[in-house]
Every structure is written in structure tokens, then in C-alpha cells.
């Protein structure tokens, strides 16, 4: 898929997820019925514009309140998103992914992928296990939302702090910590392509399990492929092959494949 179409999709998604425009003026979040439906990409539900629920926040909340039983609705939702699109969601339907890509366009020297970044890509699975599953289950608090999520700080914490005097008066060390995490994330993303997606994002970690079985996404015609690895070398993510767990189906590999073996569509 051509890059401008993907960018258009990302922009449209970001606007759609946050189309409760009046919230940005009043500082009040959307409370309509739609708020129980999760967006596929990472988008904080406390963003004044958010019309849907954050899948990661909702999962942590569901685990907190589950008392040992399976959170069926949330598991079903994540399975559905994963099996339909896998990490194509990261590439096309995530506002925070878009923000990272735009940050990376700032002209500076860039740190290219290497063995270290490939190793770092496993950290997101540890974050998933500890902050998204274990901490909510044991400490009854949404660990990732509370201690890490830069999307929540950027989309919800900062706007609400600006718009809402009551919230502003209560800010403390945790807000300072989260702003620090956001600042570090923004800084790193300028130099490292999609650093949050690659190393931290637990939602990307979840969807990565489905990349090989997702019904829509990037695919390689094995009859045409000569294994030249031009696609892997051109890819800015830490892939070992097109469509593996690190692939976000951005399609950059399509334009460099001389055999025209890569396409986007139904798997």
C-alpha cells in the first residue's frame, strides 16, 4: 500500500478515535454508549476527544475486577482484532504509531535497527506480563496505564491538566514521572524509528502473536520470492522475515521487492 494512503488512514483513524471535539474545549470526556467499544489501536479513553475505550486500559481494568474469572469480552475483543489484522493495526490504525512516525521525520542522525534493537524487542513481552497482567491481578491497579503509558499522558494527562483546574491542583509526583517517561519516549522516537512500538508497547506484543495467522495483512508469494532479503534490509522494524511478529504491514518492503512477490490483502 502506498505510503500516502497509509498516512491518510492513520490520520483518519486518529481523528475518528478522538472525534468528541467538544471535549477538547470543555475538558469533559465522552460518556456515550460507544465508550464500551474498544478502539483497535492505543488511544487513551481519558482523552477528552476519545469516543471509544482503550483496549489496553480496558484489559487491565477487566483483570483487576475479574477475581480469577476470565474477562471474556476483553479477551474476545483482542482475539478478534488480532486475528483480523494482527500488527497491521500498529501500521495503520494506531494514533500513537502515527505520532512516532512523524517524530522520526525530524531531521537528525538515526539509529538503525541492529542485533541490539532486535533483542530489545523482547522487552515488550515482559512489560505485557508484568505491567498489564501481573500488577493489575495482584496489586489491583492498572500497572501499564499508571506507571508507563506515554499515550495516556500525551492524550489525556496533559490536555486535562490544561483544561481542568480541579485536576491541575491535584497533580503530584506520579504526573511528573509520567511526563518524564513521555519526554524520554518522544526524544528516543526522534532517533529510533517507532521505539515505543518496537520495545515497549504491550498492545503490539499482543497483536504480534497473531501476525502469522491474521486474515488480512502483508503476504509474500513464495513462488516469486528468491530470498534475497532486500525486503528485510529495507524494513525499519526488527523483522527477520516479512510478516513475522515485528512486521506492522507498512508496505515499505513492497516497493523494493524486484520480484513483486509482496502484496497486501487477504491471507
Amino acid at each position: 500500500m502506498k505510503s500516502f494512503r497509509r498516512r491518510y488512514m492513520q490520520l483518519l483513524t486518529a481523528v475518528l478515535y478522538n472525534s468528541h471535539i467538544s471535549g477538547f474545549f470543555t475538558g469533559k470526556i465522552y460518556k456515550g454508549e460507544l465508550k464500551g467499544v474498544c478502539t483497535p489501536g492505543l488511544n487513551c479513553y481519558s482523552c477528552p476527544g476519545a469516543i471509544g475505550a482503550c483496549p489496553l486500559g480496558s484489559l487491565q481494568s477487566a483483570i483487576q475486577k475479574s477475581h480469577g474469572r476470565f474477562p471474556l469480552y476483553m479477551l474476545g475483543t483482542l482475539l478478534l482484532f488480532g486475528v483480523l489484522l494482527g500488527r497491521t493495526i500498529c501500521g495503520f490504525l494506531c494514533p500513537f504509531g502515527l505520532i512516532q512516525e512523524l517524530l522520526h521525520k525530524i531531521p537528525t542522525p538515526k539509529i538503525k535497527k541492529n542485533r541490539i534493537t532486535r533483542a530489545l524487542s523482547y522487552i515488550k513481552y515482559v512489560i505485557l506480563a508484568v505491567f498489564v497482567v501481573l500488577i493489575p491481578f495482584i496489586k489491583l491497579t492498572p500497572g501499564f496505564c499508571k506507571y508507563i503509558c506515554p499515550a495516556g499522558t500525551l492524550e489525556a494527562g496533559l490536555p486535562l491538566a490544561i483544561l481542568n483546574e480541579g485536576i491541575r491542583s491535584k497533580l503530584g509526583w506520579l504526573f511528573s514521572w509520567k511526563v518524564f517517561v513521555l519526554a524520554v519516549c518522544i526524544l528516543i522516537c526522534i532517533f529510533v524509528y517507532r521505539a515505543f512500538c518496537r520495545f515497549i508497547c504491550p498492545l503490539g506484543a499482543i497483536y504480534s502473536f497473531f501476525n502469522r495467522v491474521s486474515l488480512f495483512g502483508i503476504k509474500v508469494d513464495k513462488d516469486k520470492c528468491t530470498n534475497c532479503k532486500t525486503c528485510v534490509n529495507a524494513c525499519k522494524m526488527d523483522v527477520r522475515s516479512v510478516g513475522d511478529r515485528e512486521c506492522i504491514s507498512c508496505g515499505d518492503c513492497r516497493s523494493v521487492c524486484k520480484e513483486k512477490a509482496i502484496s497486501f490483502g487477504k491471507n
Binding site: 470526556i29 487513551c44 486500559g57 469480552y73 486535562l160
Partner: peptide, 30 residues
């Protein structure tokens, strides 16, 4: 099937209840 079972168990309302309140943890108020 999981989504349908979850809906029948009232879990949509649980997600909605969380989503319509400002998430104090998300915005850094803990």
C-alpha cells in the same frame, strides 16, 4: 463466542463504566 458470552455476562457495561470515568492512573493522579 467470547465476545457474546462476555456481553451476556454484562462485561460491556464494566468496560463502559471504566471508560466514562476519568482514569486517574492514566492521567498521572494515581
Amino acid at each position: 463466542i467470547l465476545i457474546v458470552l462476555g456481553l451476556m455476562a454484562g462485561e460491556y457495561r464494566e468496560v463502559w463504566n471504566k471508560a466514562v470515568m476519568i482514569c486517574m492512573e492514566c492521567i498521572g493522579l494515581g
